[in-house]
Design a binder for these strands. Structure first.
Ligand SMILES: [Zn+2]
Ligand SMILES: [Zn+2]
Ligand SMILES: [Zn+2]
Ligand SMILES: [Zn+2]
Lengths: 132, 132
DNA sequence: TTATAAATGTTATATTATTACATAACGTTA
DNA sequence: TAACGTTATGTAATAATATAACATTTATAA
């Protein structure tokens, strides 16, 4: 059973706007959209984002400085994330491929490093953009 | 045979400082260090960084907004990068594991996406930090 | 040589993210 | 309930990262 996280007011507002958008959103674009709901300062947004990332409800797309709702209800620990990013239309989707995640979660080499977490970003052209 | 890239003056200065540092460097820390060599503006640094990334002499560590010299002389195209990052001492090293890179370069799924490039970042504790 | 592309210099500005400090709400348990 | 610790909020200021716009110079090559 997964742990239930009761989101606070700001966390809910910010999660909902990202989730509804269906794609990655940038912090200041979120800020702009939630001004009408009383969230006026960047820090309010960043604090909610930090928490949401921590509990796995959203992920940060590092190469884009953007945040996307988790599309994979089972990955609430956020320790194994993979995304595909279209370099043309900037569409992003979360890859949920159990072979891939097994392969990467079990990866180890002779560096002596203990791997705890990974983030993988694939870049290319999505179906639509390929056929243009 | 690999293509020879004749670095320009600024590109050489900036590559050398990153390469000598042996680890990831941030843009403004590079800027600070190269002021004595006449490079005074952020844009001069970012332009050199962009070029160096493009030709694969350095890579960007996305989760750290930092740049590291390529530790793998064969990856001058920069289309398949993997790093291990110690969350304690922030040591970064480039993973060069042919099985891993083959696996990821050949990865495909039913999304219809044509994957051209990837970047993978592993996080954990390095040997030294583990034993503390 | 002359054209073209690549690199540089400079100023200003945009974008992304954090520090610092004060206050309020919440959950636990004495 | 009262007291306590933890989490969340509000607000202002500022730090850190990155790009736009424009003028000029240098390298490459037809
Ligand atoms: Zn997820
Ligand atoms: Zn696309
Ligand atoms: Zn490399
Ligand atoms: Zn370490």
């Amino acid at each position: 059973m997964e742990k239930e996280h009761n989101l606070s007011k700001n966390q809910k507002i910010i999660f909902d706007i990202i989730d509804k958008s269906g794609g990655p959103m940038k912090a200041y674009s979120i800020l702009f959209d939630v001004q009408k709901k009383g969230i006026k300062a960047p820090l309010q947004v960043y604090r909610a984002l930090d928490k949401l990332v921590e509990i796995g409800k959203i992920h940060k797309i590092e190469s884009r400085n953007a945040f996307i709702a988790c599309q994979n209800s089972s990955c609430q620990i956020s320790k194994a994330t993979a995304f595909s990013i279209c370099e043309s239309c900037e569409n992003v989707s979360e890859i949920s491929n159990s072979k891939l995640s097994k392969y990467l979660s079990n990866f180890s080499d002779d560096s002596g490093m203990k791997y705890r977490k990974y983030n993988l970003e694939f870049f290319g052209l999505c179906k639509k953009c390929k056929s243009k």
